[in-house]
Structure formats: structure tokens, C-alpha cells
């Protein structure tokens, strides 16, 4: 077990390291402008007094590294800073929206993951049949479409023409779970479609890859039944790549959710971040960016950890 523990420790340390590096990068991302940030935020028409005020708020008179450590120190203590646009603490602005975003992402994932794995298994099992080919063309098309196209098509069909679901996904605290689920039906469907397409294609590839291993041929030559080959010989080895595919594709949710929230005017983090970019509210953008990036890194780390744990060569080391 030592080898596994060591690998896990390494992977977690790497995750923490990436998180730190990413925080630097996000901070630097807003520093790459050659000129004055305050001027850029306010535009050319700004008065010198306004520029000076912004410089004061952002502490621009301090060197960059000091501001970075102040920012990072604040975050570690749970203080995400203050918005430029409305002077409110960012933590307060994000709190509820983060919950909404997580709710949308979680519901989508709960539908998408089983669906994608099931479709991937079917496509791999009936490889090269008409069923496989039609699933393949359908998912390829879905991957190729921008999220907002899928979103508006769904709105047009289900909200405007059929009137089955609301086109704007507004949720409030006072709503019951059922009402909330009804409200997010369309954004959730949009996200699910996009994620399923990616996930299903890679699941299919992972299973086909395992099925072409020599030990599968060996099992066939031992007269093992097809179902036993699938369950006993292929599945334990396909598990690790499938877990990897599933978790990595959940990362599409991180990006997809931003666009879908804008399409459906959903009160989540994505919407908040896009608005903040338009208003050049840099502290809010940084905070949102860091949270999205952290979610993404966490998912990647989970994928690697699960795949380490499901590797038989690591679980049973050479004595």
C-alpha cells in the first residue's frame, strides 16, 4: 500500500501546487496590460480624480507582489475582497450564486454521467452497427454546436412553441425543490446534452481499447461467455479509464455553465463573472476565476486519485 499512499500524497501535493500557481496566473492575468489598469478600467474619458480613487482602492501604488500576497492572504482567511462596482464584499455577492451554480451543475451531472456511460457501453457493444453509427453522428454534431445554439433551440421548441418549460431560469430561496428543478429544466438539458456527447464518445473509446487487449482474446479462446468477458475481464480494467473520462468531462460543466447561465439568465457565478468582466470589476473577476479554476483542478485531481486507486498493478505491488 505504501506505493499507493506515496502516489496519492504526490498527487495531492501537485494539486495544491497547481492551485497556488493558478492563483499567481490569475493575478498576473490582470497585470499584463502595458499601461495603467485604473485608466483601462475607467476608459479614456475618466477624470484624473476617478483614476486616482481607483488606484487607491486597488492599492496600485504598491508593488505587484505585495498586492498578490495581500490578496492571497485575504482569500486564505475567507476574505475575497470588495467589488469595485458596488463596494459590497465579494464573498457576500458570490455566496448564493455559487450555490445556484453548484445546484445546476450537480443536477446536470447526475443525469449526464449514467446516461453517457450507458450510451458508451451500448455503442461499444454494438460497435459499427447502425445504432453505433447514429449515436456517433448525433454526439459528434452535439459536440460541434455552441452551447448557446443548443440552448436557444431548446428554448424555441420547449418554451416558446410547446410551452412546457420556462425560458428564463429564475430561482429564489423561497422555491421548493420541485419548483427549482422545473425552473432549471432547460439549462440543465442543455448542459447535459453537451456533456453527454463528450463523455459518451470517450467512454466508447475506452471500452473498445480494453476490448482489443490480448487478455480479452485469451478469455475468448478459453471459451468464456461474452457476458462474463464483459463483466469479469473487461469491466475491472475499463473502470479506471471510464472514471477518468467521466471526471474529466465534468470539467466541461465549468465552462458550459458560464454560457448556459447567460442564455437562461440564471442567477449563478457564471453570469456574475461575465457581468463583472463587462463592468471591468477586476476583483470580482479574479475571485470568480479562482473559484472556477479551483473546481477544475479539484476535478482533475479526483480523476487521477480514482485512477490510481483502481490500478491493480499499484494495489498489488511486486512484493
Amino acid at each position: 500500500m505504501n506505493a499507493v499512499l506515496r502516489l496519492l500524497a504526490q498527487r495531492i501535493a501537485l494539486g495544491a501546487g497547481s492551485l497556488l500557481a493558478v492563483s499567481v496566473l490569475i493575478f498576473l492575468g490582470t497585470e499584463i496590460l502595458p499601461g495603467d489598469v485604473a485608466q483601462a478600467i475607467l476608459g479614456q474619458a475618466a477624470t484624473p480624480e476617478a483614476v486616482a480613487a481607483i488606484r487607491e482602492t486597488l492599492d496600485l501604488n504598491q508593488p505587484a507582489y505585495i498586492r498578490y500576497f495581500d490578496w492571497l492572504g485575504g482569500i486564505l482567511q475567507g476574505d475575497l475582497g470588495t467589488s469595485l462596482a458596488n463596494r459590497r464584499p465579494i464573498g457576500e455577492m458570490i455566496g448564493e450564486r455559487l450555490q445556484n451554480t453548484l445546484f445546476l451543475a450537480a443536477v446536470s451531472a447526475a443525469i449526464a454521467v449514467p446516461l453517457a456511460v450507458f450510451l458508451g457501453l451500448i455503442a461499444a457493444r454494438f460497435r459499427n452497427s447502425w445504432l453505433d453509427k447514429s449515436i456517433s453522428i448525433a454526439t459528434l454534431s452535439t459536440i460541434s454546436m455552441p452551447e448557446f445554439f443548443v440552448g436557444y433551440v431548446l428554448i424555441f421548441i420547449f418554451a416558446v412553441t410547446l410551452r412546457w418549460a420556462p425560458s428564463l431560469a429564475s430561482v429564489y430561496d423561497s422555491m421548493s425543490l420541485g419548483e427549482k428543478l422545473y425552473a432549471i429544466a432547460l439549462p440543465c438539458a442543455t448542459l447535459t446534452l453537451v456533456v453527454v456527447a463528450h463523455m459518451m464518445r470517450l467512454t466508447r473509446a475506452a471500452i473498445i481499447n480494453v476490448m482489443s487487449s490480448p487478455y480479452i482474446e485469451m478469455a475468448e479462446l478459453k471459451g468464456v461467455t461474452r457476458s462474463r468477458i464483459t463483466l469479469y475481464h473487461a469491466f475491472p480494467n475499463a473502470l479506471s479509464p471510464i472514471i477518468n473520462v467521466v471526471v474529466l468531462n465534468l470539467a466541461y460543466l465549468v465552462v458550459g455553465v458560464v454560457l448556459v447561465e447567460v442564455v437562461f439568465v440564471y442567477p449563478g457565478m457564471g453570469q456574475l463573472m461575465v457581468d463583472a468582466v463587462a463592468k471591468r470589476d477586476v476583483p470580482v473577476v479574479q475571485a470568480c476565476g479562482l473559484i472556477f479554476a479551483a473546481a477544475y483542478i479539484l476535478l482533475n485531481m479526483t480523476a487521477d486519485i480514482l485512477s490510481i486507486l483502481s490500478n491493480p498493478k499499484l494495489r498489488h505491488p511486486r512484493s
Partner: peptide
């Protein structure tokens, strides 16, 4: 390790 769209949003918050 930063999603592309998120990184682009961060950068575009200060760049024209």
C-alpha cells in the same frame, strides 16, 4: 489547469 474560457474572461477584464 485553468479552463480556457475562464482565463480569457480574466484577461479580457483589463484588455480591450
Amino acid at each position: 489547469s485553468i479552463p480556457t474560457l475562464i482565463f480569457a474572461l480574466v484577461v479580457l477584464s483589463v484588455l480591450p
